[in-house]
Each structure stands twice: as C-alpha cells, then as structure tokens.
Design a protein around this nucleic acid. Structure first.
Length: 504
RNA sequence: GGCCCUAUCGUCCAGUGGUUAGGACACCAGGUUUUCAUCCUGGAAACCGGAGUUCGACUCUCCGUAGGGUCACCA
C-alpha cells in the first residue's frame, strides 16, 4: 500500500505556523515511505474564501521545502483537488446516505436553531440539535425539497452507541454517540460541510494516513460513523499536538502575531531553522541531537513517537537556533539571504506591527539596502562578517547598523562618561590627527589599532579608555560592531566628520 | 457545563519498577575580548496531589486537581 498523506487547508489567505507543523509530519511520512503528499483545497466556505490563497499556501510550503507531490495547481490522478469543484461527487454520496436512511433533510431555520441552542444553554443542557426533522416522513420531506423549500442535510447519528476510534498517538478513544450532534453534511447553498467532504475526499483520494492537528479529535467519531455508513475503511488517524502560545496558554491563533508564516519571513528567520525547531516540539531525535535537517528528520521520524501533550511555543529557543543557523552560513550565503530578505520586506505591502519587532514599518530597509549596494565586494563581505555573530535573525541587523546608514545624534554625556570634557577633547583631537594622516585601507587601520593599544600602555590608560570615545563619537553608542572595521566601512570623510562634531 | 486529550526544571525534550532523574534554551557566576556579540567553564533549577498495587514507584491503576481542545449551514 502506497502511503498517501494530505494537507487540506481552508484558503483564507492566512498561513498558520500550525499548518507547517502538521505538514512537516505529513511530508516526512510520505517521503519516508516513498509515497505522496497531497494538497487539497477545502474551499467550501465561500464567505471566507480569499483569492490567491492557494498559491500563497503553496509558496509557503515551498519556502520550507515541503512541496506536495500532488494537488491543487499541481495536478494528479485524483482530482479535482478543489472541493468547490467536487460538488457533484458530494451530492451523489449525500443522496446515497439519504436513501440508506443514514441522513435526512432538515428544514429548521437558523432562528429556530438559535433559539433551541439558547434554551439548552439556559437550562444548562448541552446545546445540540433537538432532532426536530429527524423523524420526518422521508417522502414528505422529499416533496418539500422538490417544492423548493430551503433545506440542509444532516447525518443520523446513531443513538446509545459507543464509537471507538483508534489513534496512533493516544490509542483507543471512546465516545458516546448520544453526546454527538446530528451534524449538517450538506449546507443550504449546496456545498458540503467539512465533515462530509473530508470523508469522501480522503476515501476517494486513497489517503492512508490522516495526520492533522489534535483539535480534530472530537470530530473523528463523526467521521468514523460516516465511514461506517459508507462501508469504507477509515485511514490511520494521527493527531499532532496543538501548539500553545506561552503568553496566554491558549492554542496559537492567528490573532497572535507570530502565528503566521509571513511574520517569520519578515523577521528574518530561516525556514530550515524553523523546521528544525518545530520538529523538536512533540518529538525528539533518538540520539538526542538538536540540529538536523529535514532529510535526517525523515529518516528518524516515527508517527508513534509523537507526543500527545501540547507544547508551549517559546520563541526564545527558536531565536537562539536561528542564530546558530545564521552562523553556519558562509559570508556569501548570508549576504545573499540578507539582500533577498531586504527586498522581500521592501516589496511587501505588509505593514503590521508586532510586540516582537519594532522595525516593520521603517524606512531603514531601503537605507540599508542602499548602503549595501554602495559597498565594494570586499567591503560587503567584511560587513557581513562583523554582523554575522551579532544577529540571531535578520531584522537584528537594522539597529546594529544604524550609524552606518543614517544620521545619528551624539549624546555628549555618554561621550564624556564621567571624564572631563578637556581630557576627552584632547584625546579625540589627537586621534583625529592620526586618522587624517592615514591612508584608508583596512590594513592601515588595523595597524593603527595595534598602535593605539600600545600607546595606551605608554600613557598608563586602560585600552578601553582609548577606544571608548572613538566608538561613541562615531557609532553614537557605547556598543558597536568591531570598531576599526566599522570605521573602514563608514569611510574616512564620515569618520572625520563625526570626530569633528564630537570635539568642542 | 457535557465530551475528549494531557501532566518531569521557567520553556522544549530524554528517562528506568531500584538513576547522583539527563540534555538544550533561558537565567546566574567566572574566563577570553578595546564595547557588544561569539566562544569556553561552572551553577541554580523539575517528577501536580492523594490513595492503591509492589519489597520498592517519578514510572503501573484509580480518584482528585490543573491546563488544553471541542461542542456552527467554519474548517
């Protein structure tokens, strides 16, 4: 039996990190068994449909290297892969269920259903459909349908039955059929609901393993009943842990800025780092390794090793891991990625703000881009090199390079730093004259740096005291990337200008 | 509230019927360094509670408790 897994997102335009998390396992499992991973679009909710959303999903999957083998826009033998194009198919199976007496027409209005729910809630009962149309005479119902009355179709949930589903991670889970609603399977607009469509499609597309988020566990018995009604074999069920937002303890929702893939793209996270990190949520490498790529993950991953508990999603560790991945890149690779990332940020219309980032609306992207293109190849590499071990995600590079890309203001108090104005002034005047007589090459500057260290000892100053005022005068901050490399990149004219304005 | 799932350091994961309960991030301290960062060394830090089974339970069972999920003509 060929393994076939699938992801079936609703094309709403938002790509949830949880989808990627799920796909990681779907894709890995299919790959591991030389099977196929399928992308199906569950676009049965016309109200939420967003144009271009399917392409966006695909693009995101590709960014992570989790490309489906088959599906929407990709083609395959089991199409169409868009549920809105499969209406006739669903209709056929709905009719079958009605004919079998496993489903029935329901003419209840939304208002009636609402009031039923309301009363139930008030009386502290479970808000469920009251079965008003369940026992309507099928012939009479049919004639009302033919007469043009608006209707939905509901599945006839059996009474007083134990429904048992088998789940790979959690084992057998038992449900009481009386606690499960007569689910609507066909809506008034002729579209199926998720429950019907997913069962029909998974069966027809010969899906062998349903790997999806754990919030679906409670709908599994509904699906099980449908499979039984059709006389179909249910695929193997696997439920991945829900990712919990550690700030509020709830599952990561799209209201949480960092739930969307774009947030990571924009912040400058590497897809391979994200993948590595999330694969460690609910799973661990048998050898205890922390760093591994997707291919290695696929090799070691087993569905049964998945944890049943829901992990809290701690960005801190991802940030650390992303930094590690950045440092593994060559200077050239990193430079390319940073420039691509800048282009992405500049081109993107996105203007969201986030509690985790304050740079998203900044013009700094353009300034930095211009700065980089103004550098010679040799300077570009030097620049990336001194930034590499100082950033954990690309966006960190913005504040770090403030003084290189724009006018920044000098804080004299910071410059003097409890020393006398006279001492600092005379020191800077002296340094300035040294710079003036220096031919601006990196070698000369590094030599000068060495001289200054020696000079400090002569003068009986601490080495730090010698460099501190230069750093503050030029970088306008007491922290900066390596000083002389920075001076070199800034250029002689700018450096002298900064020193002049620091001397009074 | 009904139903379902879950429970080891602050966080993510290991772990065995008898262990000094292990690793990573974060944190703290020290070292390297002209700042920051990187890097190195060390430290603090956990088995939700109560019964039961057992010679012995963090590990098995039950009951609590807590957290999460789900109860739509959304998926």
């Amino acid at each position: 039996m060929t393994v076939r897994t699938r992801v079936a997102p609703s094309p709403t335009g938002f790509i949830h990190l949880g989808t990627i998390y799920q796909v990681l396992f779907d894709k890995a499992w299919a790959l591991k068994h030389k099977g196929s991973f399928i992308f199906r679009s569950e676009d049965t909710d016309r109200a939420r449909y967003v144009k271009g959303a399917e392409e966006a999903v695909l693009e995101a999957l590709e960014w992570f290297g989790l490309r489906p083998e088959e599906g929407v826009t990709l083609g395959g033998e089991y199409g169409p892969y868009r549920q809105s194009e499969r209406l006739e198919i669903y209709k056929k199976y709905v009719d079958q269920l009605i004919a079998q007496g496993d489903a029935y027409y329901c003419f209840c209005t939304k208002e009636r259903l609402e009031s039923v729910r309301e009363i139930a809630t008030k009386e502290k009962r479970i808000p469920m459909y009251d079965g008003h149309c369940r026992n309507l005479d099928p012939k009479e119902a049919k004639s009302r349908v033919l007469a043009g009355e608006s209707y939905v179709v509901r599945m006839k949930m059996p009474k007083n039955k134990k429904i048992t589903i088998n789940e790979v991670v959690r084992g057998e889970i038992e449900f009481d059929s009386n606690t499960i609603d007569d689910q609507v399977i066909l809506k008034a607009d002729g579209f199926p609901t998720y429950h019907l469509a997913v069962v029909v499609d998974d069966h027809l597309m010969e899906i062998t393993h349903i790997i999806r988020a754990q919030e679906w566990i409670s709908s599994a018995p509904k699906h099980k009943v449908l499979y039984d009604m059709f006389g179909w074999k249910m695929p193997i069920l696997v439920h991945t842990p829900a990712i919990i937002n550690m700030h509020n303890g709830k599952k990561l929702s799209k209201r949480d800025g960092h739930a969307g893939v774009d947030w990571y793209k924009r912040g400058g996270y590497l897809p391979e780092a994200i993948l590595n990190f999330i694969s460690l949520l609910g799973w661990s490498h048998p050898e205890g390794k922390e760093f591994f790529d997707f291919v290695e993950f696929t090799k070691f991953f087993e569905l049964k090793d998945l944890s049943a508990a829901s992990p809290r999603f701690d960005l801190t560790k991802l940030i650390w891991m992303n930094g590690e991945y950045i440092r593994k890149l060559t200077d050239k690779e990193l430079l390319k990625k940073i420039t691509d990332w800048l282009d992405y940020c500049i081109d993107s219309k996105y203007s969201g703000v986030s509690e985790y980032s304050t740079y998203w609306k900044s013009d700094d992207y353009v300034l930095l881009k211009n700065f980089i293109s103004s550098l010679s190849e040799e300077k570009k590499i030097l620049w990336i090199n001194i930034n590499k071990e100082r950033i954990k995600k690309f966006e960190d590079i913005l504040p770090l390079n403030d003084f290189l890309i724009k006018e920044t203001k000098l804080d004299f108090e910071l410059l003097y730093n409890k020393k006398s104005k006279e001492d600092v002034n005379s020191h800077l005047i002296w340094v300035k004259s040294l710079f003036e007589n220096t031919d601006w090459t990196i070698d000369n500057l590094k030599a000068l740096e060495k001289d200054l260290v020696l000079k400090a000892t002569d003068l009986g100053w601490s080495v730090g005291d010698v460099f501190y005022p230069i750093r503050v005068a030029v970088a306008k901050s007491k922290i900066s990337p390596p000083l002389f490399e920075s001076l070199y990149l800034l250029g002689k004219a700018e450096v002298l200008k900064s020193l002049s304005s620091a001397i009074f």
